[in-house]
């Protein structure tokens, strides 16, 4: 093994340096330094309006930062558009469910599979998609993984909220990511669905690196290898769950009203 790949191996999968972003009067992100190691579940927590979703938007490429850099898997992706970052191995889910409501669950995931570089180009004008069995077989596999096997043919708009969250996850998985960016996957789900989602993420974490934004502290402390705390656009602390739990600054700024 050469030195280059060696150092790439030791470098974090995601490395964010000095990221800042200002919206009109709001400093949404201030000089954020943040990294995710390959294989870990890294939770990002913080009060409402802290800038967590904004951070995910910048990492995924939906927004461009005012300053700072983002490296992913050893490449500088700071200036790359969102679809290129997906190509490089990032996939995200949305805080507000974002699936194609008029399509069946299977069609939704098949669309995600179809977008993958190894699935070939989508400049195909003649052959009906439904005859491309490879797409749908692969899609069915992802639905199975998230526990939606029985709902394949259901129209996404008719699924329950929790099922839609799971579908969202299946679509992200279908892009075969190295890293998942999950923005509040538990948001708005009931306790039972939440528990299932925690299990699911735990299962996924064995194969893929996860950056998890979540308000549900039980879930966070159960899933996370490391936790970072964002308050008012500033990263105030990063560490193991225990270290974060005991950090005085974190307690003062944030956890005070939770623990």
């Amino acid at each position: 093994m050469t030195a280059a790949t060696n150092s790439a191996k030791n470098a974090p999968l995601l490395d964010v340096r000095g990221l800042s972003r200002r919206f009109a009067a709001v400093d949404a992100l201030r000089d954020v330094n943040f990294s995710v190691e390959a294989g870990e579940v890294h939770a990002l927590i913080g009060p409402n309006g802290a800038g967590k979703t904004t951070f995910i938007h910048h990492v995924s490429g939906a927004l461009q930062a005012d300053s700072g850099s983002i490296h992913f898997a050893g490449h500088d992706v700071t200036k790359l558009s969102m679809h290129r970052r997906v190509g490089a191995g990032m996939a995200r889910s949305y805080q507000i469910t974002n699936v194609f409501l008029g399509l069946s669950a299977l069609d939704n995931v098949a669309l995600a599979v179809q977008g993958r570089p190894d699935a070939g180009s989508s400049f195909r004008f003649w052959r009906p998609v439904r005859t491309e069995h490879a797409l749908f077989d692969a899609a069915a596999g992802y639905l199975e993984q998230v526990g939606l096997r029985d709902k394949q043919q259901s129209i996404a708009g008719n699924l329950s909220h929790g099922e839609q969250r799971a579908l969202e996850l299946a679509m992200a998985l279908a892009t075969q990511p190295k890293m998942l960016l999950l923005d509040e996957p538990m948001a708005g789900t009931g306790p039972e669905e939440s528990a299932r989602m925690v299990e699911l993420i735990e299962h996924l974490a064995r194969h893929v690196t996860i950056l998890l934004v979540e308000h549900d502290m039980d879930a966070v402390f159960r899933l996370a290898d490391r936790i970072s705390v964002l308050v008012n656009g500033q990263l105030i602390c990063t560490g193991t769950p225990d270290a974060v739990k005991n950090d005085a600054g974190v307690r003062r700024a944030y956890l005070g009203d939770h623990l």
Binding site: N98, F100, L111, P117
Partner: peptide, 17 residues
């Protein structure tokens, strides 16, 4: 499929690569 999906939700398609 692709262009209709883009019509429905451009950002989501971008996020699917």
């Amino acid at each position: 499929r692709t262009i209709q999906a883009i019509r429905e939700n451009e950002t989501r398609m971008e996020a699917l690569g």
